[in-house]
Amino acid sequence: MGCGNGRHAFEAYRRGADVVAFDHNENDLAEVATMFSAMRTAGEAPAGAQADTVKGDALDMPFEDGTFDRVVAAEILEHIPHDTQAIAELYRVLRPGGIAAVTVPSWLPERLCWALSEDYHTNEGGHVRIYTRAELEAKLKAAGFEIGPHHHAHALHTPYWWLKCAVGTANEKHPLVASYHRLLVWDILRAPKVTRATERLLNPLIGKSVVVYLRKPAKAGSGDEGLGAGT
């Protein structure tokens, strides 16, 4: 839901899931479709796994009730003025007993970004609210979800965004921003133990995103287990 450039969709496809990458941006979806095709050609996805793109509105998704076993909504709700309607749609298209993962920017890193740069949150399509985890979970629970575990992620990305906000969000060539971007690319590609360990230590403090796991209650007698910490 709100697949953007497709990072989560690609990984799910690579792991053998049947994937629908959903977004309203035609340009992003065209690039995602091209990557899906390249992955099939290169044999990067297991035989039998399927991947497709669908354009639409998160407030009125073109899917039947209970279509999906799993839904990922990563860094999308903070862009949507009517977030409770998008959450209701997420709930509707998930099957009973299905699991969802919802991520939004963490309160503290996001609050500092807003303080450092007006452009960060006033540009077209930008962030329209800052969530506390309690607020996010309350809205998800009100929609009917069972709230499961949570964690924070991407702590190493937080200083990058603070830098961008401090020097100008469009100033990609600033030496500090460019250098830190190279560090992040190196970390993503190489995943060295030192940066992975550092990020794990920093995530609870300055993780850029908070991730909440949810379950849509199963129908009576379905036999589905509750959403535990090991899910």
Rank of each mutant, 00 (worst) to 15 (best):
F68G: 15
A166K: 09
S106G: 14
R70P: 03
W162C: 13
K164C: 13
T84F: 03
D83I: 07
A115Q: 12
H82N: 09
E118R: 13
R92Y: 02
D52V: 12
A138F: 02
T158W: 11
I130S: 03
W114R: 15
L136G: 09
G125C: 04
Y160T: 10
G97H: 11
D57Q: 10
L94Y: 02
R70M: 14
A134I: 11
F68R: 14
A101F: 05
V128M: 00
R95S: 08
R70F: 12
P159N: 04
A100R: 03
S106T: 15
W114M: 15
L116H: 05
T169C: 11
E137W: 02
A170D: 15
E89T: 10
R92I: 05
P149I: 08
A47W: 02
A45D: 04
K164F: 00
N123E: 06
A86W: 09
A143N: 06
P105V: 00
T122E: 10
L136N: 07
A142I: 03
E137R: 04
H150P: 02
A47F: 05
P105F: 02
W114D: 15
E137A: 07
K141Q: 06
G56V: 10
L94A: 07
A142G: 05
G144L: 10
C165V: 05
Y91I: 08
A143E: 00
A143F: 01
I147E: 12
A143R: 06
W114F: 15
C113R: 07
L140E: 05
G125Y: 00
R111N: 12
I147V: 14
A58T: 14
I99W: 01
Q85R: 05
P81V: 01
A134R: 14
L108Q: 15
K164V: 05
E146F: 03
H121T: 06
I147C: 09
I147F: 07
A73E: 06
T122K: 14
H127Y: 01
P81F: 00
R92V: 03
T122Y: 10
T67H: 10
T158N: 13
V128D: 00
R111H: 12
P109G: 07
F68I: 12
